[in-house]
């Protein structure tokens, strides 16, 4: 089991908690403690709003071990509204056509399980925006 490897990432995985650079105000995800833009220390946590748009996408048919039960699944690079890009699965797609530029929102879903007895790992995925009333 890889408990600690997943446990220490829970905040970012469950709810897109990243960082903001106190110097250049760049938003950082995944958190890395050093601003990739200006190189200064950036440890202030920042909650991303989970909205973004699709930069690119593909469907994985031949899944790596641990992901077979979900295959085929659609992966995307999502440009978050605040700037950074994240790689994530798209979910709740059904037969909806995916397009570059399509707006998506973050949801927390099961990423995988470590077998029947192992830990369930949850994290961010994105889906087409479910419009509020």
């Amino acid at each position: 089991m890889e408990l600690s490897q997943h446990w220490r990432l829970k905040q970012q995985r469950y709810s897109l908690v990243g960082e903001i650079c106190p110097y250049c105000e760049g938003k950082i995800f995944p958190p890395r403690d050093i601003c990739p833009d200006c190189g200064n220390e950036a440890k202030t946590t920042f909650q991303f709003n989970g909205k973004g748009e699709i930069y690119s996408f593909t469907t994985v048919r031949q899944a790596p071990a641990g992901h077979e039960e979900n295959a085929p699944y659609t992966l995307a690079l999502v440009r978050l509204e605040e700037g950074p890009m994240v790689a994530a699965q798209l979910t709740d797609l059904d037969d909806q056509a995916v397009e570059i530029g399509m707006p998506v929102e973050m949801v927390t879903r099961k990423l995988r399980s470590e077998g029947e007895r192992g830990l369930l790992i949850y994290g961010y995925k994105f889906r087409p925006i479910l419009k509020a009333a």
């Binding site: 490897q5 990432l9 995944p30 593909t58 994985v60 699965q89 570059i100 994290g123």
Partner: peptide, 24 residues
């Protein structure tokens, strides 16, 4: 591993993401 492979990304998927964007 922490931010790509956990999502089920493979090198093929990375290349596919690049290729789709490139063509677009």
């Amino acid at each position: 591993t922490d931010y790509e492979a956990i999502q089920g990304i493979t090198p093929t998927a990375q290349a596919a993401l690049l290729m789709r964007r490139y063509l677009h």
